[in-house]
Design a protein around this nucleic acid. Sequence first.
DNA 1: CTGAAAGCGCTTACAG
DNA 2: CTGAAAGCGCTTACAG
Lengths: 350, 350
Amino acid sequence: MTRPRIPRQSDIARLAGVSQATVSMVLNDRAAENRIPESTQQRIREAMTELGYAPNIAAQSLRGGRSGLIGVHTFERVFPTAPDDYYREFLNGIEEQAVDSGLDLVLFASTQKPDGTRSIYGSGSNRMRLADGAIILGFEKNDDEIHRLSDEGFPFVFIGRREVEGLDIPFVTADYAAAMEPVVRTLVDAGHRTVTYLAAPLRALAQQERLEGFEAAIAVAEHDVTYRVEVRPEADVTADWVRAMRRSGSTAIVVETFDLARALASALADANLVAPRDLSVISLDDDPRGGGAFSHVRVPRRAMGRRAVELLLSVIEGVDAPTFAAPVHCEPPTGETVGAPAPAALAPSA
Amino acid sequence: MTRPRIPRQSDIARLAGVSQATVSMVLNDRAAENRIPESTQQRIREAMTELGYAPNIAAQSLRGGRSGLIGVHTFERVFPTAPDDYYREFLNGIEEQAVDSGLDLVLFASTQKPDGTRSIYGSGSNRMRLADGAIILGFEKNDDEIHRLSDEGFPFVFIGRREVEGLDIPFVTADYAAAMEPVVRTLVDAGHRTVTYLAAPLRALAQQERLEGFEAAIAVAEHDVTYRVEVRPEADVTADWVRAMRRSGSTAIVVETFDLARALASALADANLVAPRDLSVISLDDDPRGGGAFSHVRVPRRAMGRRAVELLLSVIEGVDAPTFAAPVHCEPPTGETVGAPAPAALAPSA
DNA sequence: CTGAAAGCGCTTACAG
DNA sequence: CTGAAAGCGCTTACAG
């Protein structure tokens, strides 16, 4: 099968009886300002359809134009595509907004090096420049590469707050701190006065924000509330840990991440404890697998993904980009695992 | 902040005191065949490092023709990114192979029209051409657009067998028919002689293949096996249906899709039935959410995704592409829900 | 051994 | 209203 040559603007121009430059103007919606009559535009558009023209984005971006491509990159080892991946929902939001904005998405898979780590410049060149800009996902970051990207003037934004020294990179975040107030109020209203805050080892600034928001919410609560912060990895969240926590007087637990929440669910089962009968639980995160076992705050990951595209677009437009977009609102906790405090005397049920 | 200009080959050339063309040759490992002395190469490489040179991909692909981008498209209403989406695992495989092949992936989100349907040419031009080729996913298809794509000589492949009249489009499929033999053997060996085949309403050719494979496997089984094919939507798979099926003598059920399997799991629970005690069950599909409730065949979706990229690459290279790649092997059923036939007389357990 | 030049397909001043 | 031309940064014959 002989492959017909891919049409370019000059082919359209010939067919429509105009110059290639005129074709370019019509395609780029600059027809009006160049006073190209409607009839000419019409001819050009027909020729375009007839030939099945599509712009060569390499040429467009070489020239400095837009490619209509938004890149997604992560320094994480694995591209965030696994079904129950933490990042998946961000990507869904990014895609939704890309649809709405008429953009296509490039997943920069090629940046993955053989050892699984990801590097923008690892291959020697910045493939990302094919896109008009990029959204960077994930906890991992590579400050050198971020600096270099920034030096090159390549537009990009983060999802999640990331501090890179000396740089003010726009990012999208959720209003984690504000979400703590309804969490604390829900517990206090249910009668809890001693609460454990179960946190994961610090990886992201958002964790700090959440904890500070929690403490601030406790400070303004209607009753005195004692709290203990426990930072531990999932493996340390065992039945024994839960029992010890209860013995020490906590009647409720606020759990920071869905990983910890999963661990806690197992630990409760192992200890024959049921929420909220024996212990009230609120998770500050929702499980991407869905079916959250606990009452939880909804982190608006999808909305954050959408917002990231909008933010990136404004950076690309050269709008004086805000350092960050207004944080996306988290939904207050919903669920069934908050109840009255279990009587302290009650032994763990069988 | 003044933005330092991105270095190009001519900057290196000036610094190294050679011409830009010489720089290009050294960078492309064509130094040897052009007899460029080691000392010159050395100077060039030093200058390159000093300036932090990275080639401009747009320029490279403009010159060379390839963009290094592989497109993914679907005519389905929703782009396959939901966590437990049927297509997700294909996409994961595609991404893996893209990583291995040093390609980036373009998700053609912009092809979605306001009404949710997707069209390649809806916007007037074929955006897909910005990629070197594309993989098309999903049951839905638009024959007109497929024909047009083909007419344009745009390289593309399907995942899953799709018949488009008058066209021989390469596709990747799984060997569904062959997978039926171990399924039937597993049941026959466990003692089952009456089996229900629960199928979804016909949407894809693969369904036909599977059923034919099933019938063929029964025909060559070591014992006479009676089977009944039941085609029904999920909503019709109820406790009553299961009871009726058992009353009619079936001791085992082969369920075609994971949607049906989920419905069946609920129906069994409603009927207070437990597999394999009361009924043996094998699913011909695995649930993307994981945690398949039933013994099941593993459809090698990830491998199919990888294969699709390889197939597409061969089409792009202009290799005389086979109409289809060798079907990817399905893993035989594993799981816990096949046992001896329940005694016919046994009443449903409480 | 090395450089000057063409050309990939576009966009954008600029000149009519 | 429209076209000729420059130039984006590269690779690759081709000429010295």
